[in-house]
Design a protein around this nucleic acid. Structure first.
Lengths: 154, 154
DNA sequence: CATGGGTTGTTCGAATTTGAATCACCCGCT
DNA sequence: AGCGGGTGATTCAAATTCGAACAACCCATG
């Protein structure tokens, strides 16, 4: 790999823009969530996924594949959230090894409390800043990026 | 903030695409850099910034503002990189408190060694996946996103 | 029904990150 | 010169992250 194709100016702008926005947006969301509801961004994502799941429960592995963190990272977060009463563990009847994370009523309430402020921040920092055309380009382009990485990485 | 404007489908696709791509791309880059050259992504960014700076040196604060991490996080990373011989600290003559991080020859060599593989990965996971139109939309849209967050956050 | 390969979730230690507190210092003002 | 507010960088403890190792288990195959 001696002399690769370096990035031209257009590519460079896109890349560094993506990198910077990625870091800044994540930082801002983390801060907003923590200030506003005492949740970390990973925890919020867990709540969202569980709330959307049938029966409001998901297997640990499914939750981890969702992304965010590694398996061990998920174990840690679920333990924290269990202490806080937001989720509950339930062992899977058909597979002794399996564990469901179940959203509690308190967890659901916490999510409903946190969601409006979160959405408002998402609009403020990203969605409302972009034109509809840019939104579509993001969805299409980054959607494909995500799809490819999911295919390989797992 | 009782009932905010929720995200419609277009907005939701863009947002979750951005979130997923952001996490997956970062994870992938971290892994590639670590496997390929033993650098973390934050460390690579520090090398890049220093290499591009006049005199190949920057004040700690400028480096931290670049983003990536907090001030204390930067102190930690620079200490690690100093142990590895990639950078050197130099105190600022005009301000006793000030500290410059200076890129060493070894650091420069390390960067040149790591860059081709890094660029190839950036192409593979992002740049070459997008159309030119999508690249422009990313650059324009996310550029503005970053600009706004820089304005506020500091 | 035994066996081996692949899963599932947790545990462990090491590395990294963060914010708050701290120390030393610069600068403008009186 | 003497103050006081603000800045630059580090230190510290606590929280979080990851990967590797682990233990327990499922299941298809012979």
């Amino acid at each position: 790999m001696a002399e690769p194709r370096w990035l031209d100016e257009r590519e460079m702008r896109a890349w560094s823009g993506f990198l910077a926005a990625s870091a800044l947006v994540n930082r801002r969301l983390d801060q907003q969530l923590k200030d506003d509801s005492g949740l970390s961004h990973p925890q919020y994502e867990i709540l969202v996924r569980l709330a959307a799941a049938p029966g409001r429960e998901l297997r640990m592995t499914e939750l981890a594949n969702g992304l965010i963190n590694s398996k061990s990272g998920l174990t840690y977060q679920v333990t924290q959230m269990e202490k806080a009463g937001l989720v509950r563990r339930r062992s899977c009847p058909s597979d002794v090894r399996g564990v469901f994370a179940v959203l509690t009523d308190a967890g659901r309430a916490k999510l409903e409390e946190a969601a409006p402020g979160h959405v408002a921040t998402v609009r403020e920092v990203l969605v409302d800043v972009l034109t509809p055309e840019q939104l579509d380009a993001l969805a299409d382009g980054l959607g494909e990026v995500g799809r490819r990485l999911r295919g390989q990485g797992d």
